[in-house]
Write a protein that binds this DNA or RNA. Structure first.
Length: 506
RNA sequence: GCCCCCAUCGUCUAGUGGCCCAGGACACCACCCUUUCAAGGUGGGGACGGGGGUUCAAUUCCCCCUGGGGGCACCA
């Protein structure tokens, strides 16, 4: 919680353009955004593209698209600019160079000419000997004249920060309190690479200071290097920001959620039929809680109550089943009817077989939407549940599906029951009462007359009319399918059963 | 190997010294409702990792152990 005397809240999402953001990563963006909105501060996006070799073209667009899909907006960013721009690190190179020069001049940093081979050998030796890993090389104490000469000659080199060798370093993490480490464990990390690009260790303080970031929110994997970062902030003369190291998310296998450990891209969830609000809600409460009972939150409510302090520090396991449950809650309780129909329609438009004419019938979708919303957890389940509404004819399932329980070995009985149903419904139509209540009455009456358990008759009808065992409620379904197709499908199924029976008899 | 962080049901969590023989949610099981499938309802099993302290009193505070996670690049 910022006190009145503190700076206004400015937080950021600072991804690298190395591909699509996945859920582990995006939760940090959600929490940061929530905090900015909660405090009335700003949220901005900054692209950390200082490693040219790892850059994946198109990443930025995918990143922004992921944010947009989740309903996260930004006040400043690479696409829209802002008062502290540019928001792409590769466009800010002179700033880093200048900072590095300043550190060099103040004897806070030095040029290092060690080659990658030498460094690799050093690491190997440390590993073999079990000594403290890190750069404890000779360049730190190189003679000033030699350095000047080699630099002059154009020898490739990097700039390293000179960490203190004695004493301790303490910094504060909002969620964990003070953390202190021995300086002898801090090695001299590279801040400017030989290609003149900065490393994160330099770009981060330079930008977060220049962009007035109040809270440095980042993943817990940065915790071990935070003491070194803090030293650089201090050397640069920048007041330290508030550090918030957010816990990592664990995959089902117990490892940090990443592509190797089952992480999925945000947009993959869209593809698989998750609703953005459901994913947003789920991710927010994964590792954060308001109280002992609230699980479902609107964005507005979250903005109202979200506090960084309530984030729990232990890593949470991503629970796919709970996400699915929550998506179901959103489908049936937290999405307006028309929006839901729109989502169903978009899905069907894509997934229905090509012989179904496009655009698909929207009013039809609106009719059955209320029937299926409580039996759909993921949008991807929709097509399989309702495709028969769009097909002029339905192929009945094989006879053995019909001939179960009451109908075992009684194809003729089943066929005649279907014919009776067709007849009764056809008659119902003549009276002009084609509505689900009337359909139900007629079929219940028929079951009674045939001395059948209602369920035994309904099951036959369901299979005949929809071609499936699992369907929306039967009478409403028949109502929507219409009397013509309904009667026809019942008769088709009946004759199919008789044909199969006689074929089997022969 | 070294450094850092963490530790309540299978999972996510509530709990900040007595309200807790620990509450909620997902998942699981049973029953109810029922035209299938869902949804819904009711009930059930299920946790404070271990050992030392501190205290009249520890899930809550301290230490050790154990366990889990993270990090040790001219990557972020």
């Amino acid at each position: 919680m910022p006190e009145a005397t503190e700076r206004p809240v400015r937080v950021r999402y600072a991804p690298s353009p190395t591909g699509d953001p996945h859920v582990g990563n995006i939760r940090q963006a959600i929490w940061s955004w929530l905090y900015a909105r909660h405090t009335g501060g700003q949220f901005y996006v900054r692209l950390e593209d200082t490693d040219q070799s790892r850059s994946v073209p198109g990443s930025l667009e995918r990143i922004l698209e992921s944010l947009r899909w989740l309903g996260i907006d930004w006040d400043e960013g690479p696409d829209i600019g802002g008062p502290y721009g540019p928001y792409t690190q590769s466009e800010r190179l002179p700033l880093y160079r200048e900072a590095a020069d300043r550190l060099l001049a103040g004897d806070y940093a030095y040029r290092c000419f060690c080659t990658t081979e030498e460094l690799a050998a050093m690491r190997e030796r440390q590993k073999a000997e079990g000594t403290l890993p890190g750069y404890w090389g000779v360049c730190r104490d190189l003679d000033a004249g030699v350095v000047a000469e080699r630099a002059q000659r154009g020898d490739p080199h990097v700039v390293r920060f000179k960490m203190p060798r004695e004493g301790t370093t303490t910094f504060n993490d909002l969620l964990r309190g003070d953390i202190t480490v021995e300086n002898r464990t801090l090695d001299d990390m590279v801040i400017l690479k030989s290609d003149q690009f900065p490393t994160y260790a330099l770009a981060h303080p330079v930008d977060d200071h220049a962009m007035q970031t109040s809270h440095v929110t980042r993943g817990e994997e940065w915790l071990p290097s935070a003491p070194r970062h803090v030293r650089i902030w201090d050397a640069l003369g920048y007041p330290r920001p508030t550090f918030v190291h957010m816990p990592v998310i664990l995959g089902a296998d117990g490892g940090k959620l990443s592509k190797r450990h089952g992480a999925k891209f945000v947009l993959e969830y869209a593809e698989e039929g998750y609703l953005p609000d459901a994913l947003f809600n789920f991710l927010t409460i994964l590792g954060w809680a308001l109280d002992d009972h609230t699980e479902i939150f609107s964005h507005e409510r979250l903005i109202e109550v979200f506090e960084l302090n309530d984030i729990s520090v232990n890593p949470a396991t991503f629970d796919q089943q709970k996400l699915e449950w929550m998506n179901g809650v959103y489908v049936r309780e937290h999405t307006p009817e028309d929006e839901l129909a729109e989502m169903f329609a978009r899905r069907l438009e894509r997934e229905l077989p090509p012989d179904v004419p496009r655009p698909i019938d929207r009013s039809l979708v609106e009719e059955f939407a209320p029937l299926i919303r409580e039996r759909v957890r993921l949008l991807s389940e929709v097509t399989d549940l309702v495709d028969f509404f769009f097909q002029p004819e339905v192929t009945p399932p094989p006879a053995e599906i019909f001939l179960q329980k009451r109908w075992k070995d009684d194809a003729e009985g089943a066929a005649s029951a279907l014919d009776e149903a067709a007849k009764a419904l056809d008659r119902l139509d003549d009276t002009g009462e084609w509505a689900h209540e009337a359909i139900e009455a007629v079929l219940r009456d028929l079951a009674d007359r045939l001395e059948l358990k209602p369920g035994d008759l309904f099951t036959l009808c369901r299979l005949a009319v929809t071609g499936k065992r699992i369907t929306p409620p039967l009478f409403e379904t028949m109502d929507i399918v219409g009397v013509g197709p309904t009667v026809e499908r019942l008769r088709n199924a009946a004759s199919m059963l008789r044909e199969t029976a006689s074929a089997g008899a022969r």
